[in-house]
Design a binder for these strands. Structure first.
Lengths: 227, 227, 227, 227
DNA sequence: AATGAATGAGTGTTCATTCAT
DNA sequence: TATGAATGAACACTCATTCAT
């Protein structure tokens, strides 16, 4: 594993490297993000990198893990205080999208991980999914949702979140002219439009076996628009 | 675009390169798949590559496009003859998973595309999604499904398919020891277990607003198991 | 040596290649002028090149020789009918500059020849210089010029012509913004400004030992300007 | 510009590369002088090159500039203490020829520059010419030479020096068998024979409008020989 | 703890040339 | 006569990593 700093100064340097890495990875991806670019961005010498990380891949794995902690925390904070499973789901997705918008690295780094560090990627998804599964199981026990297989449902939810996030957060609302090579991060600040979130939640509510919730909201909402 | 061969011999060589590329890209990803590895695999000289493709990226784009045509064809063939939207959906997913199992390149190449050729990736997803949208709109007009926003639903379906495919087709059934760097293609021959497909379809049926179908099937199925 | 065409059609193809070569060499220099660029420009297949020339260098040598014939012819035509050596000299230089303006290849190709085909370059200069020497010797015998060593004088004249040509024909009049990478040929259409030619001839007249000619012209001209 | 070394060790390495480059460029010209040949000659790894120079062209430009400084310094040192303009001119040319003999790179590199880095070449000639112009203007003000246009005269002098240098320094005295591809540097150790320098100076003296100086020397010299 | 110098294997790409048709 | 396909050596350049200071 990578060496742990023994002093406060070292601790600071290590953190600087991690932050620089998130920035550089999220902008350029794993392969284009050279160690020297990272150290330049962190303002340290090139050799310093190897004081704290064994290899570039090492840093990558750590970054994925770190991001994983952070999304999950953001999501669980987002869902705290939700009065129903569906509400919790919605809050969780909203938190996920917000996090994605603020840290596009999540997307770019994680997607590339499939080919760079498959293990890290599986761990990442599995951990998030486990959170879903727990929630779904509880909700099922409480009769809040139908008796769908929580594992399959959890992976499906994971996929929905990832794809909707990519489509609306990462790419923007689709009218934006694509091909903005200049700064791929630029589009990362978008939000998922409210009606997309609404429709997505109706989709999920139905999926989880409480169509009445869906119908309720639909009736109260009155109108609905097309995307 | 890339130069077209003017003779039958050239045509054959070009196809050999494309096939080699699919193999090498799917095994190593874009960055590790060097041009020389591709030409070696195709059994041609390195210079020959540039007779048919301007750059490595050029070939990549063409490959993504080619795969896109092929999945979509596989899916539309799979759905031909389905008697309802839900049945069509199921057949489409089954075809998609089968294709993925046989061409793991789809996954690996496409996921990496986000960082290599974003435009190609957007095109890829967008085209598949458009097919979904059309189907959903028709089904909605026929009263077969609820009035969910077809665009949002389509992207959600795309996400579900991708994630379930990654989880069960690419990774295998989860008990398999991971970390098999030696030949990541190996796990690509798995199938999505039937009950996973069943649960996934129940999830989707509910989502699309015809819970009665769900209930029906559930009752007729009698038992249900956990993943 | 390079093969000679046996038919009229072959003769035409060969000439097309030579013309394309002059164009491409003069625009890009020897190294950047690939055989394929030449054949493309000539509108023939790549293999056709080797029907008429053994190597790229072969073509280069032939081109230098061809250009040499053409400049010398242009110069001797230019001097025909001159009533004095000095007048002949002036007419010769004017013809040389005109030729250079119309065929920038002369400059670019010949200068690069030093490193590509030294023999061709020596031959080129030597032949032109020999023409000068003959003329100077005659003029000296006629008492038209002083008794300067004709060989040294001839090389000096060669140098003057080349440098003035580069400075005023190739580069333009010096006020032109440099760095015109776009089309280096563009500047090749300039002329040597008349007063530069005048001053150059006064310089040469003095050098050749007939200062009275210089004085005469200077007096009749009255004014003189600075460059 | 290219990165500057931050330590003494780096400084030494950079200088080694510059020296190797002069050697290799002067022997093979820009195109044949591969980076690996240069680094081999310098005894450093190939990657080291890019620590100090951004590109091969970068190094080339720097080398041209460096050579330019050095010739001009050699020339101005050579002319120091000359008692007349004509004497200064002679000393300057002698210094120029000596430098050329010792650093054939001047010739080969500079001539190729026309096609490799036109800007560098123009700068090179222009700077030398500016030195000439200053000297000529002074001499003209002192009545030492006629009132020839100094700019035109300066370029003419530049051309004479370059051509005579090529003919007698680079090629040797003309009897030497040409075509010595093996080591083109070999011929670079020649000197301009004294009588060639004499005749060249008579040519120039006449050109600059002080024919009496010419006559004087001619009379005192008595005889003259052919080259 | 920190660094800049150094490296060499590796990359994508070009090109003069050969050859079967 | 003419061609386009094929080649492999060569090139400029990058980069993760090591090491002396």
């Amino acid at each position: 594993m990578s060496a742990q700093p023994r002093t406060a100064r070292g601790e600071k340097t290590r953190r600087r490297l991690l932050e620089a890495a998130e920035h550089v990875f999220s902008k350029h991806g794993y392969h284009e993000a050279s160690v020297s670019r990272i150290t330049d961005h962190a303002g340290v010498g090139q050799g310093t990198f190897y004081l704290y990380f064994d290899t570039k891949l090492d840093l990558f794995d750590e970054l994925v893990e770190d991001l994983n902690h952070r999304v999950r925390q953001a999501m669980s904070e987002g869902t705290r205080g939700a009065s129903s499973r569906i509400e919790a789901e919605r809050a969780g997705f909203a938190a996920f999208f917000r996090f994605t918008a603020e840290h596009p690295a999540l997307y770019r780094v994680v997607r590339e991980a499939e080919l760079v560090s498959p293990e890290a990627l599986r761990m990442h998804y599995t951990r998030i999914v486990e959170g879903y599964i727990d929630g779904l199981r509880e909700a099922s026990a409480d009769g809040e949702i139908g008796d769908i297989d929580p594992t399959v449902a959890a992976w499906a939810l994971m996929g929905i979140g990832e794809m909707i996030g990519m489509r609306w957060v990462l790419w923007g609302d689709g009218d934006a002219a694509p091909g903005n090579d200049a700064d791929p991060t630029a589009s990362g600040t978008r939000e998922v439009p409210p009606h997309v979130l609404d429709e997505m939640m109706r989709f999920i509510s139905g999926a989880l076996g409480r169509p009445e919730l869906v119908r309720d909201r639909r009736e109260s909402a009155g109108e609905k628009e097309e995307s």
